[in-house]
Amino acid sequence: MRLNRSNLCWLVLALITVSYLVFWALLLVATATYSTPDSWLQVLRSPEIRHATFLSLVTCSLAAGFALLLAVPVGYLMTRLEFRGKSWLDAALDIPIILPPLVVGLCLLIFFQTKVGKVIELAIPFTYQVSGVVLAQFVVAAAFAIRTMRGTFQHLSARPEDVALTLGCTRFQALWHVALPAARRGMVAAFCIAWARSLGEFGPILVFAGATRMKTEVLPTTVWLELSVGNLEAAVAVSLFMVLLAVLVLVAVRATGEKV
């Protein structure tokens, strides 16, 4: 192939892309080769890590489920209804994405010290509890789930729903019978993205739910706790386990045809 200017341009762009991927591969390889598979397994078998793993899987699933329940109606509203102030509301929904994670945790902590927060805690205690872990994961994950569902509904034509209205549906029935079945791939993607986001959540959990071993410790907290006592091997083992889970989620999202 002759190296003309156009080809040279593609070659440079490809080199930039490959360099970035190689950098990431080197990071992962360096982490993976820091210790042996035997020591990974030994670490992952310890009661504390098994508890943290179990708690992570449960809280991430709950947070992602709640995020999806919120994301579907909000995403549908933001896509199908035109109203004054929509662009402001649209921007407000992205606030949890741009806020520093520690600030989210601090906001939660302060809120539950107010009168309203204390009344809520009489019914469901959140601060420094497992339910607090779920809430901290949910507040950030929901913003990502809403983004995904908004994109899903934007790609779906509103026409079938219009036709459903003329065939006898109420707006709720059109959403339930027509829009939701058509959006099921997007719903799976939104759940997976919210789940993955919850799995990596650390700052808000640390501030709002704490890092108590065998109580509110989730996998990112484990990495931090192990690092703080100089146990790098355990931190590496847990990190690699989280990388594996993240890759599985990425594969699941790609299988739905959606993009993260």
Binding site: R159, P160, D162, T166, L167, G168, A182
Partner: peptide, 19 residues
Amino acid sequence: EPRERGIGYVPQDLALFPG
């Protein structure tokens, strides 16, 4: 509301229900 009008509507893209 549309459902109360007894009108059949076939839009240009036909809008069959996906799935």
